[in-house]
């Protein structure tokens, strides 16, 4: 049986694991001396750090009254926002509508690939061992909202709930970085080469990497260059397998 990684034990200690995974991990740790010992070390280490840090920052902050009064005075001085003129907004809506339409057109005519100028792919400096130590969970893939906005912007797309997800080109589970260069807006439903199919490929490649069947850098390069070609190669098929069409891991963009 595989042991639980330090990262996951840390998440367990901090109550950060999704419920079902947490139950699984607890069951394992209960019967495994190795994991139990590492969990104790992590938990104790964190507690010790928190204590040491509390001591280091146990200084006298000046009383809060002065700074609070200053803030109130400054807030008072902020001029009320002038409402945006309606024609301004209309122009924006029109521009967005055109962009949306253009994207739809593009989407029908082309299989779903990211724009290599905007999204060439970016990786974290992680070894195979490190990559395989981090659990492959949905939660790991949350993109900060501010960065997701940036990605939609660079592709000229209005974020539409439950239609696009901002997807990693190289998934974090394969060492992909949370970086606009590695993110692109992927429509959920369109075509056969959809997000579910790509997720299935990522899972498969990760298994191969962690089993030692292929190099991490090879997996990263192939998925960044042409994920559809990689899918065809690794699943020995021209079309997505039917089980993969509904493979769903990511949360819809909200």
């Amino acid at each position: 049986m595989n042991h639980i990684s330090d990262a996951e034990l840390m998440m367990l200690a901090d109550n950060e694991l999704p419920e079902d995974r947490s139950a699984e991990v607890r069951r394992h740790v209960k019967d495994c001396w190795n994991c139990l010992a590492r969990q104790a070390e992590l938990q104790g280490g964190l507690a010790e750090f928190l204590q040491a840090r509390a001591g280091a920052f146990d200084m006298q902050l000046s009383a809060i009254d002065g700074p609070a009064a200053l803030l109130r005075a400054r807030m008072k001085a902020v001029r009320p926002e002038r409402r945006q003129l309606p024609w301004n907004r209309l122009a924006l809506v029109a521009a967005v509508a055109v962009a949306g339409f253009w994207w739809l057109q593009w989407d029908i005519e082309h299989p779903l690939k990211p724009d290599s100028r905007l999204t060439p792919g970016a990786t974290m400096a992680m070894s195979r061992e490190e990559v395989c130590a981090v659990p492959d969970a949905d939660e790991m893939r949350l993109v900060p909202a501010s960065m997701a906005g940036q990605v939609f912007n660079s592709y000229g797309i209005q974020p539409t709930p439950r239609i696009y997800e901002v997807d990693y080109l190289i998934a974090p589970a394969l060492g992909g970085a949370t970086d606009p260069k590695n993110l692109w807006p992927q429509p959920y439903a369109a075509g056969v080469w959809n997000a579910g199919v790509k997720d299935a490929l990522e899972s498969h490649l990760r298994d191969l990497v962690c089993k030692g069947a292929i190099d991490l850098s090879t997996a990263q390069r192939e998925i960044a260059t042409d994920w559809i070609a990689a899918y065809r190669k690794y699943f020995h098929t021209d079309k997505p397998l039917s089980a993969h069409a509904s493979f769903r891991k990511d949360l819809p963009w909200e």
């Binding site: 990262a7 840390m10 981090v134 790991m140 949370t178």
Partner: peptide, 12 residues
Amino acid sequence: GISLGAVALALS
């Protein structure tokens, strides 16, 4: 601006 997995890894 990093992933959740990167946070868990950095902390442990």
